[in-house]
């Protein structure tokens, strides 16, 4: 019964059937399926979607739309999460401050990453675009974020990724956060050069890399 529900949820997500996904989420709650099991099913659906995407069998709009309604399903579940569960090192407890750096108004990629991270269970704090390094660092301090994600589309603005990292060092909180960078001009080499912890090619990779890093940290 439960495993049937699991499979139907995964299928609904792969079919990009929002209505069915939300309906099954509510139904599972009503039937008393443990919340963490429902989260597993939703995550599994997105994970499979991501695998298909990486194989070239699913496309960005499908990924984004599925991520958005899985996020809605999480919202349905949130009030039912026990306090202990919420605090027990789950991804919801990992706060990610994300921003497109100063001078750059291109936030499509950043929005994608924010959506995918949120759907994957991270607690995403999106500062928007054209965000000065100082604002980013202040927000990290204020929220005690564990992750900073920095996006830049232009070669002229990517230097601000480095600036933000330098500021984290100056403010002596660099060792408290993990930094991931992305955007068209960024590369693994660039990430290494400016002292970031990771580079992600796309939103799916950002999710995967952050999960790897976080699980190593915990």
């Amino acid at each position: 019964m439960e495993s049937d529900l699991h499979q139907r949820m995964v299928k609904a997500i792969l079919d990009i059937d929002e209505e069915e996904t939300l309906r099954l989420t509510r139904k599972a709650l009503e039937e008393g399926v443990p919340v963490e099991r429902i989260i597993d099913s939703l995550s599994e659906g997105l994970r499979e979607m991501g695998l298909l995407f990486e194989k070239g069998e699913r496309y960005i709009p499908e990924l984004v739309i599925a991520a958005e309604f899985v996020d809605k399903a999480f919202k349905i579940l949130e009030p039912h999460l026990h306090r202990e569960e919420a605090a027990s090192g789950s991804l919801r407890d990992v706060r990610v401050v994300i921003a497109t750096v100063e001078g750059d108004i291109h936030d499509l990629g950043k929005n994608l990453v924010a959506t995918m991270l949120s759907a994957a269970g991270f607690h995403v704090i999106d500062l928007g675009k054209d965000v000065p390094a100082q604002t980013i660092v202040s927000k990290v301090k204020e929220t005690n974020a564990q992750v900073v994600a920095l996006s830049a589309l232009l070669t002229t603005t990517m230097a601000h990724q480095e600036e933000a990292i330098n500021l984290l060092v100056e403010e002596r909180i660099r060792d408290k956060v993990r930094v991931i960078v992305g955007g068209a001009p960024a590369s693994p080499d660039w990430a290494e050069r400016i002292g970031a912890d990771a580079y992600a090619e796309n939103a799916m990779e950002a999710v995967r890399k952050l999960k790897e890093i976080i699980s190593g940290d915990v």
Partner: peptide, 14 residues
């Protein structure tokens, strides 16, 4: 805004 998360996009891109 962006259009990536719109049903219209999902329907038309293919």
């Amino acid at each position: 805004g962006n259009f990536l998360n719109k049903r219209h996009t999902l329907k038309w891109f293919r």
